[in-house]
Design a protein around this nucleic acid. Structure first.
Lengths: 189, 189
DNA sequence: CCTGTTTTATTACCAAGTAATAGAACTTAA
DNA sequence: TTAAGTTCTATTACTTGGTAATAAAACAGG
C-alpha cells in the first residue's frame, strides 16, 4: 500500500503548489514532483483541476469581478429606504475582509462608513461633507452579521444638518452616532 | 486616403473591445470587426498587444497583486513611528478610490480609518476595540494629498484608553479625533 | 495604368494541452 | 513464485490559439 499513499501525498503536494502559484504547467509540475507529465495529467483529471490556461482565465475573471465590486462602493451598504431630507435605512452584511485578523471583530471604520454614507445620502443637498461626528460602539460585531442602520435628520441650522444614525444587528443596538454635516454650494466647512 | 483612416478606426475599435473584454480571441475579434484573422493579428502586432493567453495571464497576475494589497490593510496607512503605549505616526496618501465621485473629496471614513487603526496600533494591549469617538473634519481632503496622523495616549483608566489623533496634510490640520478604546482579555465593551 | 498601402491567404511551426490506448513497474495476496 | 491489481509512463493522434514568413489579391491615388 505504499503506492497509494504516495499518490495521496503527491495529490496534496500538487494542490498546495497550485494554490500558491497557479500558473505552473504540467511539465514544470512533473519536474518539481519527480514524476512524468502523464502522471500529473492523470492526477489533475482525478482531482478535477483544469489546465493552466483555464485556471489562469478563471483567476483573472474572479479577481476582476472582486475588484470591480470593491471599486463600486461609494455608498457602503444597500440603501433600502430613503425619505430624502428626513430619514433613511441601509443594510450591510459583515464580510470576511471587514474583520480584524486578531480577534475576528469588525473593524470600526466599516460600521462608521455605513453610518456616515447613509447620513450623507439622506441629506437633500447636492454636495455635502461630514463636519463632526460623535460615535459610540456598543457591542462588537462579527462576520456574517447583518447591520441595519437607521438615519434621521433631527435638526437643520443654516447649511448644517444634525443627523443621528443608529445601527443594530438582530439583537442589539451595536452602534450609535451623531453627525453634523455641512452642505455647501461654493466652499465652506 | 480612405483606407488609412479605416485602419485607424479599426485600431480604436479593437482597443476599446479589448479594454472592456480582454478575453476575446483573434477569431472572435475578426468576426466582430468584419475583417480577417490575419488583419487582426497584424493590428495587434502594430499596436503591441499580446495574444489572448498572454493578456489573460497578465490580468490575472495584476488583479491578484491588487487584491492582495487590499486584503493586507489591517492597519490603514503606513506606520512610520511607534512608541507602544505612548504615541505613533502614520502616513497615508489619498488615492483615486478614496474620493467621492460627486465632488472628488476624500470620503470621511478613510480618514477616520487611518486615525482609528493608528489609535488601536498605539495601544500596548493584545486585543482592543473602539468604544467612543469624537471627531471633527476641518478641511476637505483631495486626491494625491499625503495625510500624516499623529496619535497620543493621553490617559488610561482601568481598561479604557483615551487617545487623541490629529491628522494634517501639507498645510493644515484636516482632522482631529478623540477615541476611547477598550482593551479586553475576556469580554467587555 | 502603375504604384504603394492595406488586406487576405497559405504554409510551417509551437506550446500546452485532451483523449485513448498500451505497456512497464511495483505490490501484494494466494 | 506467480498471477492480479494498481499505479505510473509512453506513444500517438488531434485541438486551440497562436507566431513567423511569404505571397497574392484588392483598392485608392496620382
Amino acid at each position: 500500500m505504499m503506492a497509494r499513499s504516495q499518490k495521496k501525498q503527491r495529490h496534496d503536494a500538487l494542490r498546495e503548489k497550485l494554490n500558491s502559484s497557479p500558473f505552473l504547467t504540467d511539465e514544470v509540475l512533473a519536474g518539481q514532483l519527480g514524476v512524468s507529465v502523464q502522471t500529473i495529467r492523470l492526477d489533475r483529471l482525478e482531482m478535477g483541476i483544469p489546465e493552466v490556461r483555464e485556471r489562469t482565465k478563471q483567476m483573472a475573471e474572479e479577481a476582476r469581478a472582486k475588484l470591480k465590486a470593491i471599486g463600486s462602493r461609494d455608498v457602503i451598504g444597500d440603501l433600502i429606504d430613503l425619505e430624502l431630507g428626513k430619514s433613511g435605512i441601509s443594510v450591510m452584511t459583515v464580510t470576511g475582509d471587514m474583520v480584524m485578523e486578531k480577534n475576528r471583530i469588525a473593524h470600526g471604520h466599516f460600521i462608521f462608513a455605513q453610518a456616515n454614507s447613509l447620513a450623507l445620502a439622506v441629506l437633500d443637498a447636492p454636495v455635502a461633507v461630514t463636519g463632526v461626528a460623535n460615535i459610540k460602539y456598543k457591542v462588537p460585531v462579527h462576520i456574517g452579521e447583518k447591520l441595519i442602520a437607521k438615519a434621521e435628520i433631527v435638526k437643520k441650522r443654516g447649511n448644517k444638518y444634525f443627523v443621528w444614525v443608529k445601527t443594530r444587528n438582530d439583537q442589539h443596538e451595536v452602534f450609535r452616532s451623531k453627525f453634523i454635516l455641512v452642505s455647501f454650494d461654493g466652499e465652506g466647512r
